[in-house]
Amino acid sequence: MEFHDDFPQYEFRDQHGEAEGKIQRKRLWRVFWYMLGITIFELALGSYAASKGFNKTALICIFISLTIVKAYFIVYSFMHLGHEVKSMKWIIIGPYTTFILYLVFMATVTEGNYSAIHKVSPPDKSYAKPTEAETKKAEAEENEEPAPSTTTKSAEGAKHE
């Protein structure tokens, strides 16, 4: 069965000779070095920040912005979206970015209430084997914790009625 390709003229448009190929390869290797540099920096920052106490919000901002930079390089350069026409670029970037922005809005504004959550979950000490005294103390604390939340729940229930 013969295979008939659709719109092969666009693929022929992308074909180039050796000279142009050399220039493109040089650009691709340059992007590779950028990616490698950013990744090494992220890893170093990640393991360094884990030992010292860094401001969590600053860390999150740095890592996410570096990840978006890497994503830009991959989509624009490796996936050749930079070579496409403007409308094609917008078709890919527009809806996805809109959705991601909305997702972040959901995560941080409507669903993310950090202060209340930090109060509820105490640090987890079970990584290392605890001593007998520590185990008993942890069990006592766990029995205490549900008490405040149940009282607020019943108070709210009384208010509704």
């Binding site: 390709d5 659709d6 719109f7 092969p8 666009y10 693929e11 448009r13 496409e84 026409v85 409308s87 094609m88 078709i91």
Partner: peptide, 10 residues
């Protein structure tokens, strides 16, 4: 036979 986005189906 022409794509306004100048890109093929696939």
């Amino acid at each position: 036979g022409v794509s306004p986005l100048k890109v093929s189906y696939g």
